[in-house]
Nucleic acid binder design. Structure first.
Lengths: 149, 149
DNA sequence: GACATATAGTTCGCTACCGAACATATTTGG
DNA sequence: CCAAATATGTTCGGTAGCGAACTATATGTC
């Protein structure tokens, strides 16, 4: 991205890209992207879920979610139905096809983690996570507006 | 991406997204994206450069670079001319407009780093960078093929 | 010199991500 | 009860990223 002249920042990006590329390589035969996988993961484990809940779950914005969902609907893996209680909301659920697919899927995350962080002790991993979590929070708190008061 | 159930992996992604979002917020008034910024950075500091060199510099693939370059050419910030020595290669250089723009640009990376990692001591930052660098290398080495022997 | 191979870029089609603007539906305030 | 505000989703247009397939140019090799 540019951040060649720093270290942690640049490597966070590169790590992210490498893992995303790998997840997508694993998922390609199944016609799924990384974010699509996570939507299926949620639906398989938690059952039907309002679409809006995925915003916080995936930490993405509405247009991104809208795209991901419509890809899954187009492929026939997910069903999107209006909530009778609130006509604004949509409930997402696995279709039969989607559930069938899920059964055959590998867990790409487990694979990535075992390759990427094998042999790193958990204290170190916790430290890394903490530094990055704090960095993320600072960026997100700063970004929204420049104003506080 | 999914990696909600791990720690360092998930936060590397979230940090990356937060910083990219912020860089793009800073650059939006100038009609530039994060990767586009880095191309200008290189050209401003190193002068005209063969397009192919940016593949290693930015660690991106050819189609991505092709897109970024054509966006910059379209906007009139960069000039793409064939290398007389080798008709396959293209040389990239700043236009007058591009150089003019560059002078007025803030350095988004410095801003990000100061916000994100302010107060973190450099030993810790080095450790984070090392863990992520190793993770990236393992992923990249594993990915290309599954075969060794 | 001719043919095979390697290199540089582009194009196509896709995922993933965002902000802005929009349509609807619900909730709140007067 | 009705107008204003809020919440949910979609659409549009953009950046950033990839693999596969393609063109054109160079470089071997026989």
């Amino acid at each position: 991205m540019s951040d060649n002249h720093n270290s942690a920042g640049a490597w966070a990006k590169k790590y992210h890209l490498a893992s995303r590329t790998m997840i997508e390589r694993i998922l390609r035969p199944y016609d799924l992207g990384s974010t699509q996988w996570y939507v299926l993961y949620q639906l398989a484990h938690q059952g039907p879920t309002p679409q809006r809940d995925f915003l916080a779950l995936l930490q993405i914005e509405k247009p991104t979610l809208s795209d991901v969902v419509s890809a899954l609907v187009r492929k026939g893996f997910v069903e999107q139905t209006p909530d009778p209680k609130d006509q604004r909301q949509r409930i997402l659920a696995l279709t039969e096809t989607g559930r069938g697919l899920w059964e055959t899927l590998p867990d790409p995350i487990a694979l990535i983690l075992s390759i990427a962080f094998d042999g790193v002790d958990s204290d170190t991993l916790d430290l890394v996570a903490t530094v990055l979590r704090n960095a993320t929070e600072r960026l997100n708190n700063y970004a929204p507006e420049g104003n506080e008061t």
